[in-house]
């Protein structure tokens, strides 16, 4: 899942302070799950904006809405319709960056502003906590690392073992919060009886499948309309 954090309120306020009719639109998928951009956040942000801008003597109309996903045309069309029908002059989206782009590509002359900071692909690591688990490198190497990704979870993305900063299972970059992923990999491979594989050298990675190879697309020809 994509993880995002709410943007500092002041930033969002600054983006929209000169608009008259603003739509705050949430996304019902990843950002709802990670508590940053669902309907509840939409309502809270909208209320906050009304209060804060009201204090500045501005009283813009702040409208609210949430759609199931902002990364699919069919779900986004109602937002576009609202923008047109309700003469909205700016949109704040609480979807991840994907949603911001998706709307920007479709909103014509109406500006869209991000309401969250999109951070990583991660998973719930307990109540109110999410952790980065994958970096989307496009060529998964976890088969060699016990299913644990050193690219996403090592502060230095090391592929051949821990640096000298691994101490008591923690990463020197933030010993209180980050596990040394190489300790995890070591422990896991030990459990799997595959420790010897650690002696193999993982060669320099081909990063073309990651964003370094240019903007990526994913294709399922069998579903594409023939050209």
């Amino acid at each position: 899942m994509i993880i995002a954090d709410p943007k500092p309120f002041g930033q969002v306020k600054e983006y929209i302070k000169d608009y008259k009719r603003v739509l705050v639109v949430g996304c019902g998928t990843c950002v709802t799950v990670c508590l940053s951009g669902g309907e509840a956040e939409v309502q809270l942000l909208a209320s906050g904006l009304r209060i804060a801008l009201g204090k500045n003597g501005k009283n813009p109309v702040i409208l609210e809405g949430t759609v199931q996903r902002q990364c699919d045309e069919e779900f986004v069309v109602p937002v576009l319709d609202r923008v047109r029908d309700e003469r909205i002059d700016a949109v704040v989206t609480l979807a991840c960056g994907v949603g911001v782009n998706f709307l920007a590509d479709r909103l014509g002359s109406v500006p869209v502003f991000p309401g969250v900071d999109t951070t990583f692909y991660g998973a719930s690591a307990g109540q109110g906590l999410w952790a980065e688990l994958c970096a989307g490198c496009g060529n998964c190497i976890t088969a060699y690392t016990g299913g644990i990704c050193p690219i996403a979870r090592c502060s230095k993305h090391l592929l051949n073992g821990p640096c000298g900063g691994s101490e008591k299972g923690r990463c020197e970059v933030a010993p209180n919060s980050i596990d040394c992923v190489w300790q995890l990999i070591y422990d896991r491979l030990k459990k799997l009886g595959r420790l010897s594989e650690l002696q193999n050298l993982l060669p320099a990675k081909d990063w073309r499948t990651a964003s370094d190879g240019g903007v990526r697309r994913s294709v399922r020809e069998y579903l594409q309309e023939p050209k």
């Binding site: 019902g28 709802t32 508590l35 669902g38 109540q127």
Partner: peptide, 13 residues
């Protein structure tokens, strides 16, 4: 049901 993202927050709290 349409709005539920199955986020498990309810389960956790």
């Amino acid at each position: 049901e349409a709005v539920c993202a199955g986020c498990l927050t309810c389960v956790r709290v």
